[in-house]
């Protein structure tokens, strides 16, 4: 694997939109060419090199390219947008849209991420050691085609609207989440290892949610149908099994209605 290192040396006055920081955009280029890649600061065109010192050399393909950002990206948006392979590691925080529309490869953020992390993701892996704000793995605003594949792991807390319109893939929140989990989802799996305040599975058609802590306010559209033993992300426990959202349309398969499943750890 070939490593490219970006070292931030100047704080942008606005936020930088860096769709171009991805193994796909870097592959096959020299460090000098990477410095010349265009990014946006508000409505102004700037170059990656205006804000980052670029060193090392990428591989010929995205798959052979690792990117290490040796510093904080709190004012950097769109890291790894649409990336298909390779990896990005950030020493610190990142702003919105980390790994949006990502198809493959791996992103590791050692700090926190802002909203829209893994939005409409199709494949690959995102790991955030800190917290995430809102819209982890959700669909783009207005779109009914959300996350389709891949894995997002937030080791800290997450905000609201997790997995909206999710169709596939896995989202793991290791601590607590606020409200709106898997709203409108038609597939995929969300695991919340801490507590959730409420609105879990609203208008959910298909898919699974696991809550290993407590749900403060259950939605009335979910009905308990039994108790099951499950081994979820390294935790073996007994779960209350609910189906729902009973207020939503549901597909039929082999003569049976298909519901979404909500598993809440039995206390």
């Amino acid at each position: 694997m070939a490593l490219v290192t970006l070292k931030p040396y100047k704080e942008p006055e606005l936020y930088l939109e860096c769709n171009n920081i991805s193994p796909d955009a870097f592959a096959g280029k020299t460090a000098a060419e990477i410095s010349e890649l265009e990014v946006r600061e508000g409505k102004t065109r700037v170059l990656l090199g205006d804000y980052f010192e670029v060193s090392g050399k990428p591989g010929d393909t995205a798959e052979e390219t690792d990117i290490h950002i040796a510093g904080d990206c709190s004012r950097i948006k769109y890291l790894g947008t649409k990336m298909t392979a390779g990896s990005i590691k950030v020493d610190g925080n990142a702003d919105m849209y980390v790994g949006g529309w990502m198809k493959g490869g791996k992103i590791h953020i050692t700090g926190n991420v802002h909203s829209f992390c893994g939005i409409a993701m199709e494949g690959g892996e995102i790991i955030v050691d800190g917290n995430a704000e809102n819209y982890v793995g959700s669909a783009y605003r207005g779109d009914w085609r959300g996350m389709r594949g891949g894995t997002i792991r937030i080791r800290g807390n997450a905000g609201n609207d997790i997995g909206t319109f999710m169709l596939g893939g896995t989202i793991i929140i290791e601590k607590n989440a606020f409200i709106h989990v898997s709203t409108h989802a038609e597939g995929g799996c969300v695991i919340i290892k801490g507590d959730v305040e409420g609105r879990v599975g609203g208008q959910m058609v298909k898919g699974d949610i696991y809550v290993l802590g407590k749900i403060q306010y259950m939605l009335p559209g979910f009905k308990k149908i039994g108790t099951v033993e499950k081994d979820i992300d390294g935790v073996s426990a007994s779960f209350n099994h609910y189906i729902g959202d009973l207020g939503e349309r549901h597909p039929r398969s082999k003569g049976k209605d298909i519901y979404a499943n909500l598993f809440v750890m039995a206390s």
Partner: peptide, 10 residues
Amino acid sequence: PEDKLFKSPN
């Protein structure tokens, strides 16, 4: 809003 996504060049 999704009608504009990636279809609104600078």
